[in-house]
Design a protein around this nucleic acid. Structure first.
Lengths: 213, 213
DNA sequence: GTCTATACACTGATAGAC
DNA sequence: GTCTATCAGTGTATAGAC
């Protein structure tokens, strides 16, 4: 019992190292976040870290796995295209609401910073990035748009192209939010842009727009 | 005369240093492209470089200035919105043709690699990046779309939003091309996507699409 | 302008005492 | 598990001879 309380209080040294490393890497990048700095933040000598992780790389991938894999791709699990695509515009609203939530969440912001930072340096990160932003999301959205085309909700065309056209601005806005924050530029006008995007997109593709308003 | 020939042959040590640095930085990033490596590539001792450039940072900004400032923003100089926007879709085709040309040009590819690499690290690079991809191009395109709205070529709306909607996929494709190349993934299907984007976009915004085909 | 030699800070990582 | 001590390597940059 005492041991358990102690473990929670300490949060296990392994966890504390990960937290400290996440903080530092998000703040100054992988290279500059040295083992010495991580150790200092945790309150350890740098050599003690090597009892918990083989090397710096192992710490990095522990962070990536914990955040990227588990927290990033949850929308389509909750709202699979097959079941919800028929709702058309509402489905898209919910999709961008998720992206928006993620874009402004501090934890995901840290992760996204790290990912962008290591995008050129680290092939594993690059593969995760490509899979998420250029494969997985596009594939799922394409399926949704294919169903919408079948139901006659939107004009027919290449579902993959449609998915990219819908997704690209979200990608663009998300990077914009991150960079604006880094440069201390205001992001308030970006809070409504996600919904505006859906409106603009929907007006361009929906069948009803053929009838002039 | 002899001195001039010699200068051309040598290309001036200063220039050779820039070329070598560009190559190395694009290949391994700013951090890992050490002064030792740059010197070795030029055929100098590392200390000799300091006779030409104060430090590594000065080399970096010499490259940035040379490439980014001069070669990046040339489209709107040749085709200002005021004079060409009335041509509607054709103007957009020419715009994406320029972007496409840049995206597949080896020299610009190197620059873009470096920029993405240093995006998180270097505030100056970040400012250039933001100015180019989120301010300048959007502002110019918004002007073009505003004129198109006035001429009744496209449905009216917020010109800035329209510009972002048109530009974001180009941004998305360009990053995709770079990352795919880095991962040795095929980019052949991306060579036609720029034109497809214009078609998709135009079908969504042009006035004539109100009449069913 | 270019060389040799060197200074100095910092990196990731290891050996061995406790 | 954590400590002290230490390693080899890499980084930018400078002093002074030629």
């Amino acid at each position: 019992m005492d041991a358990q309380i102690e473990a929670i209080k300490k949060g296990s040294t392994k966890e504390k190292i990960l937290d400290a490393a996440l903080e530092l890497i998000a703040q100054m990048g992988y290279q500059k976040a040295s083992m010495r700095k991580i150790a200092k933040k945790v309150g350890l000598r740098e050599s003690a870290i090597y009892n918990h992780y083989k090397n710096k790389e192992e710490i990095f991938f522990a962070i990536m796995q914990k955040l990227f894999v588990t927290d990033f791709d949850n929308f389509f699990l909750k709202k699979p295209p097959q079941e919800h695509a028929h709702r058309g515009k509402r489905y898209l609203y919910e999709y961008v609401a998720t992206i928006k939530l993620i874009s402004f969440d501090p934890k995901h912001e840290k992760l996204f910073r790290i990912v962008l930072w290591e995008l050129m340096e680290n092939s594993e990160v690059r593969k995760m990035f490509l899979e998420h932003f250029f494969d997985k999301n596009i594939k799922n959205l394409a399926e949704a748009f294919f169903l919408m085309m079948q139901k006659g909700l939107i004009r027919s065309g290449d579902p993959m192209l449609t998915a990219q056209e819908f997704f690209a601005p979200l990608f663009y806005f998300r990077i914009q939010i991150l960079l604006f924050k880094m440069e201390n530029r205001s992001t308030t006008h970006l809070s409504t842009i996600f919904e505006k995007h859906v409106d603009f997109f929907w007006e361009g593709v929906c069948i009803n727009s053929f009838e002039p308003t």
